[in-house]
Structure formats: C-alpha cells, structure tokens
Design a protein around this nucleic acid. Structure first.
Lengths: 173, 173
DNA sequence: CGGCATCCTTAGGGATACTG
DNA sequence: CAGTATCCCTAAGGATGCCG
C-alpha cells in the first residue's frame, strides 16, 4: 500500500481485466456482494437467530476468530451490524453485535432462503428449524406479489424494465 | 490422485477441523451453500433475466469460460439449471441452460435481494433495473407473512422452533 | 462458436499465539 | 472473554490455449 513509484509495468505480470461484480452493477448483484464472502451470510443468519456476542458467533458459526473479526468489522462498516458496548452490573464490559435496521430488513431474504431450502434441500425428513410467527405460531413464509396484489411464482411473470444502464432481458422459459 | 497408501499421518500436516457449512446444517445455511461460490449467484441472476447460452453468460456475467463451465456444471448437478440441446433448423446444435422448477423457485430470493438492494444500496438515484409484473405493470415485491396472514417485518417477530437438531435461539432485538 | 483443461494469481479462511 | 496479528493452506477465479 502507498508505494509512490509504479514504474515497472512488468512488476505486475497479471492484472485482472474482469470482475463478475463489475460487469453488471444491478441491484441483485449488489445484494449478493453484500452477502458475498461465504462466512458473511453465515454470520448474518446467526445474528438473525439472536446471537450477539463474539464468542457465540465463533462457536455457532464455526468461524475462526481472525476471520470472524474481519467479517464483523466489514458488516459493521456496511451498516448491517452495529457494535455496542454492553456492561452488565459489576461485570466487565462486553461488545455486542446487533442487527441495524438495514440488517433487520434482510429478513425476507433469509426467510426466502429458508423456504427454498426446506422445499428443495431437506424435503425428506430432517428439517432442522421451523420458523414460526411468534404471536400466532403459524409458519412463516415469503410471497412475491406486485403492488397491485397479484401473485408471482415464476421468472416469466416478471419483466425487467431498463433503469439507467440496464439490459432489456426479461424472463426465462 | 488415487494413491492407495495413506500411511504417513504427517503427510497431511494440516486438516481443517471446522467448516462454517458443517457446524449448523440448518436450512438457511444450506441455501447459502447452494448460492455460495460468488459466481453462482451471478449466474442464477443472469438465468433469471432470461440468459440461456454459454456465450451470453460469459459476456453478461463477466466470468471466464473455465469457471463458467465449472459453475454451470455444478448448477446442473444441483438441479437448478438443465442443459438442453437446442437445434435451430440448418444450424449447429447449441446447448442451452434453463432454469428448472427448482431454479425457478429461487424467484422470491432474487426479488428479496433486489428489494433490499434497491432500498439500502442504491437509494439515491441510480436504480439500474426495475422489476415489474408482466401483466399489470406494477412493481414486484416480496413480503413475509405467516400462513395465517400476519405480516412479518423484523426478526423478533420470528421464533425458531427446534426441529430435530436445532438450537433454541429465536430473535434479535 | 461452444465448451473444457491447464497454469497461475488472488482472496478467503483455519490454527495458533498473543494483547487488552 | 473479546479481539487481533501472523503464518500457511485451500478455494475460487482469470487468462490462455486446445478440442468438438
């Protein structure tokens, strides 16, 4: 970092021309980027389940402390988690990582992931966790609708309208 | 590969004890796993937008052919895409990669990702693509409800009920 | 042109040990 | 216990070149 002289071009024998994230800066890619290092998604899921302390993340997520530290820092920088000093009376202060509003609004994504996996990945018997509405006890699910209330079930029901710099693509078969 | 003798234990100086995927085999992690190599998500997004041909994936996703080939193979193996021989009259046969039912049912996840990014990542001005209901033209959104119809907006509305081998965690603040 | 294999670079992540 | 730095290995991806 911060070397002033960039003289020799052969000093960098290879420089990446392409990067999958750069090509199409559309929203879905941006979101994927935010969840992108594998462990980030795992941590968010864990936070969603209520975990807040470093130690618990480490234990439950199975992420080594060095990586966990880095990921948490990134998530805080991204505004998905916030780090707060929590001080129990008489005890030493502890840091807690809690979801921000931005982080909490990932819920639909997490539920959608859960739905999909429940349906396609663990169909036989071994469902691990069931997500229920706390107040009424009914299972929680995502649904896709347009703002007029029509249900969407397949990509072909959706058309992508070109914002500023978008492609015209629309639907698969 | 395929050396029969596995004699020396020191031949493997290091063996990973932990893996973030293994610790908690819950549905959300399983789903994350399915989207996990960065480029997989990008490809799925692209398929969702209607892309089918190897060349187009390469161009639109900015993924080098070798990797693209591997990811497509994995996605086919996972049953998310299916490879079909498409033969235009008089032309050479082409392979097409199309979403299966399993792949198509990822829609809620993609829409949820899109929603979230639109709201938190590209708020100012530069929205790239808008997703509309093809029939009525209204924008498409995800919603989370329980099967009794109540809206869910925050993790604290959700409780995780222990399936077979689950943890009791439930909600964040 | 569609698709795959090889070679190499980067970045992601585990273990360990150390600091506040 | 919370968090970080170091060291090293593996996973993931780009470029290139070859085969159908």
């Amino acid at each position: 970092m911060s070397d002033s002289a960039e003289a020799a071009p052969e000093a960098h024998p290879q420089r990446w021309q392409r990067d999958a994230w750069d090509i199409e800066p559309d929203s879905i890619n941006l979101a994927l980027q935010s969840l992108s290092p594998r462990t980030t998604g795992v941590i968010i899921r864990e936070a969603f389940y209520g975990t807040r302390r470093f130690d618990d993340f480490e234990r439950h997520c199975g992420i080594s402390p060095s990586v966990l530290s880095a990921r948490l820092r990134d998530l805080v920088a991204d505004g998905i988690l916030e780090k707060t000093r929590y001080r129990a009376p008489g005890a030493r202060g502890r840091d807690e990582y809690r979801l921000t509003d931005k982080g909490r609004s990932l819920v639909p994504i997490l539920i959608a992931l859960n739905d999909w996996a429940e349906h396609w990945l663990v169909p036989p018997d071994g469902s691990t966790v069931t997500l229920l509405h706390r107040d009424c006890g009914s299972p929680v699910r995502t649904g896709v609708t347009c703002t007029s209330g029509h249900e969407i079930t397949t990509p072909s029901q959706v058309s992508a309208v070109p914002g500023p710099g978008a492609r015209p693509a629309s639907a698969s078969g």
